[in-house]
Computed example of a mutant assay.
Amino acid sequence: MRLNKRENNLYVGKLAMLLILSFLMGCSSTGNTKGIPSSYSSPEMKANEDSPMKISKLESITIPSKALDKDMRATIYLPPGYQSDQSYPVLYLLYGYGGNENSWFTYLHMGDAADRLIESNLIDSLIIVSPDYGNSFGVNSDPMDAPVPVGVDAGFYEDYLIHELVPYVDRTYSTMKDKQGRWIGGISMGGYAALMLGFTYPEMFSKIGAHSAALWTYNSTDQFTGQRDWLYANPALRELRDPFLLSRSNELNEMTIFLDAGVEDPLSEKDELLYQQLQEEGISAQWETSPGGHDFAYWSSRLDDYLLFYAELKM
């Protein structure tokens, strides 16, 4: 069959797109046995020109979870020159609603930012862990507690993240195993989850980053009220889950908290209110806002600031 020039160009374009999609799908699948890391160098990870063998790596791992009764995936960033005889701080990064364990690296290019700041001696070498946690908001939930909104995942995700994921990472990698070397952060839904988990387990984390965190104050500006009403279905659940209440009930004096949101983000008002409350309670917190909305463009523009908060090199 002979194709004219236009048809030939369309055919070549479609073929190229299919090849790209098949490559991306292959990268996203773990294809490894339970608990066995599958390591690869991401295209965004660049070798240091002076030390070409010192490159960072992303590892895709699968962890069998008893809490959730299924296998869970996570993506692990190992810094350039990672060595098993050296202990590294660990940053747990949680994605926003609809994301997955690769979102921080494929859409936001966090690994590329970490490489650049490590090579520039601006931050300490660190391990970054981005786990799959569905659209669960990181809480332990039972469908018997409240009807589950469409698109939300119910299950014992808090137990998985705290009691299974963190110990697994500490057993498998060369980590600093105290709270001073363990941090947690996230965007949107992940920002909420980071606050909820960090405030609930202050003995485990020394820093929390809540970036455009999904928060509610029960006024007319609340967004996604179906998710709010599921999370806070009754006063007892709200006591366990609402960062505004948790910050009053838990001891957070040894913790540092960083909140930020774009000027055009409807959630900015809520996040700043939490910052003000933390200030009133004498808890170490900082608030930043800059141009942008609730989107990848804003979060991508803030990656350096996020990493400097978590791991800035102390001179």
Results as ranks from 00 to 15, higher is better:
R171A: 06
L126Q: 13
N140F: 02
N140I: 12
M53I: 08
D69P: 01
Y92F: 15
P131R: 02
S120Q: 15
V148Q: 03
F156N: 02
A47F: 00
D145Y: 00
Y97S: 07
F137Q: 03
G31Q: 10
D132R: 06
A113F: 13
D159Q: 11
Y88L: 07
T106A: 06
V148D: 09
Q86A: 01
G31F: 06
Y95F: 02
T106E: 14
N140P: 01
A47M: 05
Q86L: 02
I61S: 01
Y40C: 03
F137K: 05
Q86V: 03
E119P: 00
D142Q: 02
L58M: 07
S130C: 15
N48L: 12
Y97T: 11
R116Q: 00
D124I: 05
D115I: 04
S136G: 06
S41A: 11
A146C: 11
Y40K: 01
T30G: 14
M53Y: 06
P43Y: 14
V150C: 00
K70D: 05
G111T: 02
M110H: 03
L165A: 07
Y173W: 08
M110G: 10
T62Q: 14
V148K: 01
V139L: 13
P131H: 03
S41D: 05
I128A: 00
E119W: 09
I61E: 12
S39Q: 08
G31K: 04
S42W: 12
